[in-house]
Computed example of a mutant assay.
Amino acid sequence: MNNKFVYAPGPTSVRENVRLERAKITTNPDVDEEFVEFYKDTCDKIGQIIHTKNPVYILSGEGILGLEAACASLTEPGDRVLVLDNGIYGRGFKDFVEIYGGEGVYFSDDYNKNIDVEKLSEFLEIDHDFKYATIVHCDTPTGVLNDLSKICPMLKKYGIITVVDSVSAMGGEEIRVDDWKIDIALGGSQKVFSAPAGLTIVSISEKAKESMLDRKKPIVGFYCNLNIWSNYYKDKWFPYTMPISDIMGLSIAVDNILEEGSNNVINRHSRIANATREAVKEYGLELFLKDGYSNTVTAVKIPENIGALKLKEHMLSNYNTLIITSLKPYDDTILRIGHMGENAFEEKLTYALNIIDNGLKDLGFSSEHNLVELFNKHINE
């Protein structure tokens, strides 16, 4: 199980210095105030990467925790919430809204491109009575990237709080939380940060905090209540026992990004993604998206006579390599190339592309080209 080559849009590969950090002897995070300082320092470093002076918190739970916690903390019964829907995860935000008694209202757009900002503007002119809006930065099942720099300021003009799921983009795509007026930005440890799964990253603006505090009814539950973090640093006391080894590993993963330079990391993702897309097209395959390509995930349409699921199983059984498909209804249509974080290096990608090339040709796909040669050509352009 541990020897197979896994190339997925998260969890990504974990660098050795991160793995070794997690193996170190730890202190007691409940009572040692030095850990409080370490935790805050790690949060502040993440704030540098996402360009915010808002407080950043690290929560114990995989990235989905952040999505639910944002909805749990903001939603009161009867609140109207705008759900921007141009992907599977974007659409799924409505479930969290309604769990906590809100009314989710869709603004739906095509799933094969980014959100049409003009159409959204026209929609908001007619209907903008929403407490908050949910937006997915990169919708992982298709790799579509939405333009937060235009969407979030537009929503804020109407006083709408902005909640952004950037789990699959944060670190690999530019995100400027303060400049783009993002009230709650959500990330995860297992994507571009390339630490093990299990941690959620949350930044919270003053506007979002005020909304959470100025409620008629208390927030339902405890673990998803973002208010419990407000005074942790002043009180030097965490709401629950923190997973210290995980946070130590994440801190090193964040250092890896800062040492390379966060802009350099973004540029590396862009080079890798552009070369991948050009190679795939020249090879004779079709991209799922028409526009709005993320630099962390490329969604490739697999011919019907082969099928993405059959290709995945063939690569796993014949090459001990796991490259995954998408979620339903695209699970047999799309193969996802997850070039994010530690997977966004040429040596990792050329191995994955070689396996995809072999797998497709084994199953009858005809191309006069070689995917790796095409990638190498475009990466050097």
Rank of each mutant, 00 (worst) to 15 (best):
M1R: 14
F5S: 03
F5I: 06
V6E: 11
Y7L: 02
P9F: 01
G10E: 08
L20T: 03
R22G: 10
A23E: 13
N28Q: 04
V31M: 14
D32R: 08
D32H: 05
Y39Q: 02
T42I: 00
C43M: 06
G47R: 07
I50L: 03
K53M: 13
P55E: 08
V56P: 09
Y57I: 00
L59H: 12
G61S: 12
A70M: 10
A70R: 14
A72W: 05
S73N: 11
L74V: 12
D79G: 12
L82E: 01
L84E: 12
D85M: 08
N86Q: 11
E98Q: 13
E98T: 03
I99E: 15
Y100L: 01
Y100V: 06
Y106M: 13
K113L: 11
K113F: 10
N114L: 06
V117A: 08
K119L: 13
K119I: 06
E122T: 13
D129P: 07
D129G: 12
I135H: 11
V136Q: 03
C138L: 04
C138R: 04
T140P: 07
P141N: 06
T142Q: 01
G143S: 01
L148S: 08
I151S: 00
G159K: 09
I161C: 02
R176C: 13
V177T: 15
W180Q: 11
S189Y: 01
A195D: 09
A197I: 13
A197M: 13
L199K: 04
V202Q: 05
I204E: 03
A208M: 09
K217M: 15
G221C: 03
S230Q: 14
K234N: 09
F238R: 09
T241E: 14
M242F: 02
M242C: 10
S245E: 13
G249V: 12
N256P: 08
I257V: 12
E259G: 02
S262H: 13
N263R: 08
N263Q: 12
N263M: 11
N264Y: 05
I266P: 08
H269Q: 10
A273V: 03
R277K: 04
E286I: 07
L287P: 06
L289E: 05
G292A: 00
S294I: 10
T296P: 00
T296N: 06
T298D: 11
T298C: 09
V300Y: 07
I302T: 10
E304W: 14
H314M: 05
S317G: 13
S317L: 11
N320M: 12
N320Y: 13
T321N: 04
L322P: 07
I323R: 10
Y330C: 00
D332W: 07
I337W: 09
G338N: 02
N343V: 03
K348E: 13
T350L: 09
T350I: 15
L353G: 07
G359L: 07
G364I: 10
G364Q: 10
S367W: 04
S367I: 09
E368Q: 12
H369D: 15
L371A: 05
E373Q: 13
N376Y: 10
H378R: 00
H378W: 12
I379P: 01
